[in-house]
Amino acid sequence: MADQTVVVDVKDLVKRYKEVVALDHFGLQITKGEIFGLLGPNGSGKTTAINCILQLLTYSKGSVALFGQSMGPTRYDLKRRIGIVPQQVAVLPELNVRENIDYFCSLYVADRARRSELVSQAIAFVGLGEFASFRPKKLSGGLARRLNIACGIAHQPELIFFDEPTVAVDPQSRNAILEGIRGLARNGATVVYTSHYMEEVEQLCTRLMVMDHGRSVAVGTATELKAATGIGERVAVELDAPDSDVLATIRRLPHTQHAVLEGSMLRVDCARGGQNLGEILDALNSLSVGYGRVYSEPPTLNDVFLELTGAELRD
């Protein structure tokens, strides 16, 4: 049975920037060992929420407890149990890989011998062994990201915040990073993960929160979020003779939310429930319209995200 110890407990957090409410009675609970995904469009309040949790920002109202204890700017005992991997590579360009990891680790671990051991483990964990003496500017983008991660996790924190750690990395490095995060969780760490890559979040996170306008819009597993929205599958059919009558017929079907013709390809977004694919094919058969390839895709997290937060452009 999973450990249900609450590691992050945020209640009723309110943060204002003059007239703008960045966090509007925001609440969050994360239990030990979770990989918790925090999603939201730009300006939704994710970063503000994390900064308030980490006490980098003050807040007008609410409470933050970590590991069951009230968090404050001088709670160094709690800070020593936290790791942070910022979005940008935040390492010192004048120090080499090993020195960088050792420097950031020294902010948490004073004992030099112990630190040396931890640094070696971190270097091995992110696979930077052969680059240990390299300065950051000599590293590729992917390797620099891995160094960034190593600097945040070398002291073996129990709670780790990852802020979009896979931005601008190639698929190989991304897989390595994601697998590393899974490894940390397997070893007992609790992970808070923010990203705009929905597929990645769906793959990685055990539970998700979608934020918008400083509030939690939905919380649950990916499956629960998909179930909670009304989005069904997306069906695509390659028609032999596409015409507007066919499209009009499909649009009149009870579960059709949206249908378009793209060349010979008919694309239909369906509502949840019903035999959507069967109904569409029956309709085509009744019109004696021939078809070739047929695809049916379940709803993605991206669909859920857009459903919850709207499709309009943000900053």
Binding site: L54, L56, T74, Y76, D77, K79, R80, I82, I84, P86, Q87, Q88, A90, V91, L92, F104, L107, Y108, C151, G152, H155
Partner: peptide, 24 residues
């Protein structure tokens, strides 16, 4: 300036460290 949390992500990282700021 490199240690100031508002100036850079390195500064923020240091500010989140488990030691008092004066010790850095």
């Amino acid at each position: 300036s490199g240690l100031r949390s508002g100036r850079s992500q390195i500064g923020a990282r240091v500010a989140l460290g488990g030691v008092a700021r004066y010790r850095v």
